Simulated scan of single mutants.
Amino acid sequence: MQDKLEAIKERFEEVSQQIIQPEIVSDSTKYSKLSKEYKDLGKIVEQYAIYQKLQKDIAGTKDMIVNEKDEELRQMAKEELDELLPKMEEMDLIIKELLIPKDPNDSRNIILEVRGGTGGDEAAIFAGDIFRMYQRFFEKMGWRSSIMDFTEGTNGGYKEIICKVEGDDVYGKMKFESGVHRVQRVPQTESQGRIHTSAASVAVLPEAEEVDVQINMNDVRIDTFMSSGAGGQSVNTTYSAVRLTHIPSGLVVSCQDERSQLKNKDKALGVLRSRLYEIKLKEHNDAVSSQRKSMVGSGDRSDKIRTYNYPQSRITDHRIGYTVYNLPAVMEGDIGEFIERLRIAENAERMQEGETI
């Protein structure tokens, strides 16, 4: 591990010199790439400096315990060592976690898709609740979100809603939300007061760029239709909404949030590109690990990742067996603890498998 850290430190110093060269500064692509590498390496180098100081302090304290003649000073050194060793264990874990290769998609923006699954009208209402929960979380994170397409439920909520989310490390945090979310509560549509179970499925797709997926426009059928959402006087008067059908894959994407047909087409292409990229990612992940499941799942209650129990104010994440009893706060976007625990669990698995830079 020490050799790896030294190599990273050398590379950091090399990048810090390259990034100030005029030919690099004038090339936005190279500068952006090196800036990101400088930032990522800097985090490791910063922790490595703390790690080295702890190593030095521990070595000096141990030397004092062995060679110091004054018993009082030796006792003080033993007490100091008792404080330093746990810090070293903690720092050791931090360093090992930093050395886990970062998912190259973590820094990407995302396309978020929420769909009502099992449960009819109540599933659509719950899909709306889940989407609102995410909107609150995005606000807390300082991310920007824009709705691209939606189909409203008969009694509220959404049968389907798709939005784009932009910000720092959006996919890195949101990727754990993919799967089926199950709710247990008395539906608004239930007159007998009985608890029902329904579900909504969530897909988090890393936003793909043109270099990731090449789309042959000859393979895409383009249809236009009238918008049904908020858009001022142009709504239901112009054919600004766009539907793309990718013939080879059968994927269908719609976008209607812009007044401009051209802008809607560009946004729909972005969603189509991300869905095709997700298919490529899934094929790759399946080849690497047979344990990796489809992001969206079936929308059925048998394929659940999290349960929201309203009568008990309980939320349970079934992947890590983590339960909290603060459902109102969670539905207001307080999902950071779930995301952090899932990230830690994933990193623990990767460390166990021996994945390092």
Rank of each mutant, 00 (worst) to 15 (best):
N216T: 01
I215V: 14
P206K: 00
N236K: 13
A203G: 11
A203Q: 15
R221H: 14
V202A: 06
P206L: 03
V204N: 05
V235I: 09
V253R: 12
T197R: 07
I215E: 15
V220H: 12
N218C: 01
S234W: 09
V220C: 07
R221L: 11
S240A: 14
G232W: 07
G250C: 04
V253G: 02
S201A: 13
N216P: 09
V220P: 08
V202M: 10
G232M: 12
A203Y: 10
N236A: 15
D257V: 00
V213C: 03
I222Y: 07
V220I: 05
N216K: 10
A200W: 13
V235D: 05
I222K: 13
A203V: 12
S234P: 00
L205E: 01
D219R: 08
S254K: 09
R194I: 10
E258D: 13
S240K: 02
G232A: 09
H196Y: 15
A200R: 11
S228I: 09
R259Y: 00
E207A: 06
I195D: 04
C255R: 00
T237P: 02
P206S: 05
S228Q: 15
V202R: 11
A241N: 06
T238R: 05
H196K: 06
R259K: 13
Q233D: 14
F225L: 14
T197W: 08
Q233G: 04
Y239M: 07
T197C: 11
L244C: 09
H196P: 05
C255T: 03
T197M: 12
E209I: 10
R243E: 07
R221G: 05
T238D: 10
D212I: 12
S201W: 05
G229Q: 13
V220R: 09
T224L: 05
R194H: 12
I247W: 01
S228W: 00
G250M: 05
D257F: 01
V211H: 14
D219H: 11
E209K: 15
Q214V: 13
T245A: 08
Q233P: 06
V252K: 10
H246F: 03
V202Y: 06
P248D: 08
V235E: 12
Q214H: 15
V242C: 10
M226A: 12
I247M: 13
S260T: 07
G229H: 11
D219C: 01
R221W: 05
D212W: 12
T245P: 03
R259H: 00
S254N: 14
R259P: 01
A200P: 10
Q256I: 01
I215Q: 07
P206D: 02
S249D: 12
H246V: 03
V211T: 15
I222L: 07
T245L: 08
H246D: 15
R243P: 14
C255G: 02
I215C: 10
S240W: 06
Q233S: 13
R259T: 12
T238H: 02
F225S: 13
A241E: 11
A200E: 11
S201F: 03
S227V: 03
L205V: 02
S260D: 01
T237K: 15
L205P: 03
F225A: 09
S201I: 02
S260W: 05
L251A: 04
I195E: 00
D257K: 02
R194N: 13
I247C: 06
S240H: 04
V213R: 11
L244Q: 12
C255H: 02
V202N: 08
H196T: 01
